[in-house]
Design a protein around this nucleic acid. Sequence first.
DNA 1: CAGACATTCCATAGAACAATAGAATGATAG
DNA 2: CTATCATTCTATTGTTCTATGGAATGTCTG
Lengths: 231, 231
Amino acid sequence: MTSQQELLDTLAGVARALGNGHRLALLERLAQGAAAVETLAHTADLTVGNASQHLQHLRRAGLVTAQRDGKHMIYRLTDERIVTLMALLRQVAETNLAEMERLVGRLFAEDDAGGALEAVTREELLAGLSTGKLALLDVRPEEEFEAGHLPQAINIPLEQLEDMLDRLPRDREIVAYCRGPYCVLSHEAVQRLRQLGYRVRRFEEGYPEWKAAGLPVSAQPAAATQASLRP
Amino acid sequence: MTSQQELLDTLAGVARALGNGHRLALLERLAQGAAAVETLAHTADLTVGNASQHLQHLRRAGLVTAQRDGKHMIYRLTDERIVTLMALLRQVAETNLAEMERLVGRLFAEDDAGGALEAVTREELLAGLSTGKLALLDVRPEEEFEAGHLPQAINIPLEQLEDMLDRLPRDREIVAYCRGPYCVLSHEAVQRLRQLGYRVRRFEEGYPEWKAAGLPVSAQPAAATQASLRP
DNA sequence: CAGACATTCCATAGAACAATAGAATGATAG
DNA sequence: CTATCATTCTATTGTTCTATGGAATGTCTG
């Protein structure tokens, strides 16, 4: 076996690490910020043992690193580019696989019934924020918001949406975002807020893509972030 | 199973299609241009039956399309971005996997003994070509050259290198390129030409990356290209 | 239409992978 | 130092992937 083939095999090993839905779910959560195994297992809907095993797999492929913090093992992405890699994989799949269109359609079918209200693009959002015409709503859990979020964003986790409506402006259009293009949280939020009469649209990307693009992000002080890693 | 999980599973299916060294080799060849199964099987060092099966796999994942041309089945990449996807995969693997460094080191160990002569970057090459200070040498097989190549490139397939030296200038530095960063053809060419006293360095990328970056490429007339698809 | 050729399909055996449960390890708190 | 908790390791079983060889399909040539 030549060196070149070994190289391709090693590369294939990295691709294989991405070749499992559960592992992609884990990576998507890790793209929001570092987290402990238990947290990761919970968001990916896996048993802790199973999640640990998948994380080992990702670690062998060089996609994540682990670091002990007391009783907990904190995992994080090794490289910001992994977010870009997943986004590109998504784009290629979306344009070339009919199956994807069907699934994306189903995910987006419920809200946006009229189809009139398109998702907000990155450019539109940047413009709207600088002119103050848009308000920005982060509907992810508090823990993920604290690990990092878009500047000027208001955090109302989806579960508490109706309880904290007083934080939302009535006079401006609201843009909701969450974990990424396939994350359902912002869809759900848009749907519910529209029924309450708010003018609200969805951001077509999520926090990880924003950050990977090199755009500015805000975060809580390190102490708070550290604490939030522990489940 | 939720729609979101199905989406990730579908995406994982695409990643899994990339998760095999032979398939990556096939894609790398396809990045040079469309080709028939026999050609692909030959460059990837596979039996025709096996290559066909791998190509089916890639087709199901939406990465390649097939189109019949007489007796031959011509495969091509569905999307130029697949080249970018593979390049990104390579970058992530190179920076995060120690194993990769070892393998890349071994691949590059033989030539460039002094280590003094770095590979030529894209910027350097563009500058050198516009000022006429550099000559450009494509050492891929004629067939791939005809399917597309960098502007101003001279084609001397590696096997015929010593037979066609009269095509090379003595007064300018030569830059050799081939299929991509892991392709050994240009390394081999640089080594052999240096022993003959030429001033020659290697381009750090290859034809597919150049093309995927949107830079201009030249190609033979369509008729010749068509013919070259048949092995 | 027969023969040659390119490709795909099919069946099989062996290898790798995934989920599960239970044992083992490592770290903290009392 | 022991009890406890988070995590990892190990063994097992069922599933999926890969390579191989041979049969089947489709296309061209004479």
